[in-house]
């Protein structure tokens, strides 16, 4: 993956956010405070614009992270920013990142998210998506593994529906948090999906609608 592909990934994601931000707000409205889509869209609009000058993958995600850090706020802001900062560190000095490097970067990102938010799998947070998808990529750092990671991410996001939230704002609802998919898991699954779309010919965006979620 070269710097242009990194940018394509993240611009693609920004584009996707502009289509689904109301859906994410709606999910967050049911078990949180209704701003996850708005937060993400606001952040990626500003942060993506700051990547323009970046010359390497590492630089691109670093600029993106700094942009997110100054615009998103909320719980998702520091988490996504930390994730991209860790990718940037992993990819330092690289002109291009292989699928193996990509997997390592995503793995470092997951570690960062868990360090910042101390959530574990099953807590109904974005960790529920990152953990199995990263697992997938690490064990099979190929196009096939990436497609599989995207599929796993989607399924993991849908599976959060039946979980009781134990971290983040939704946790205050206790049992009432069951029955709605975690918005940060959905935004994370879409991030993995956009990655697969960028790197794998023929891969298409899945339907993310209120009916499905």
């Amino acid at each position: 993956m070269n710097v242009e592909q990194v940018k394509a990934w993240l611009h693609g994601y920004q584009q996707r956010l502009s289509e689904v931000h109301e859906l994410l707000d709606e999910l967050d409205n049911r078990i949180g405070d209704g701003d996850h889509g708005t937060n993400m869209l606001r952040g990626f609009q500003v942060a993506c614009a700051q990547m323009t000058e970046a010359a390497t993958p590492s630089e691109a995600v670093h600029k993106l992270a700094m942009g997110l850090l100054s615009t998103v706020g909320g719980a998702s802001g520091p988490l996504y920013a930390t994730a991209f900062l860790r990718m940037s560190q992993t990819w330092r000095e690289m002109e291009e990142v292989s699928l193996k490097d990509l997997s390592d970067g995503l793995n470092a990102a997951l570690a960062g998210i868990q360090q910042r938010g101390s959530a574990n799998v099953g807590d109904k947070t974005m960790v529920d998506v990152w953990a199995p998808s990263v697992e997938c990529m690490l064990s099979d750092p190929t196009e096939h593994g990436l497609l599989e990671a995207s599929r796993v991410a989607r399924q993991a996001a849908l599976n959060t529906r039946q979980l009781v939230a134990r971290r983040g704002r939704a946790s205050y609802l206790g049992d009432r948090s069951v029955g709605t998919c975690d918005p940060g898991s959905v935004s994370s699954a879409i991030l993995f999906e956009c990655l697969a779309i960028t790197l794998v010919e023929g891969m298409e965006a899945g339907p993310w609608t209120a009916q499905v979620l």
């Binding site: 701003d35 850090l69 100054s70 615009t71 998103v72 706020g73 802001g77």
Partner: peptide, 12 residues
């Protein structure tokens, strides 16, 4: 002050 119901950013 963050946005409505949104934590402010670390920069702020």
């Amino acid at each position: 002050a963050g946005q409505i119901f949104t934590s402010p950013t670390p920069n702020e």
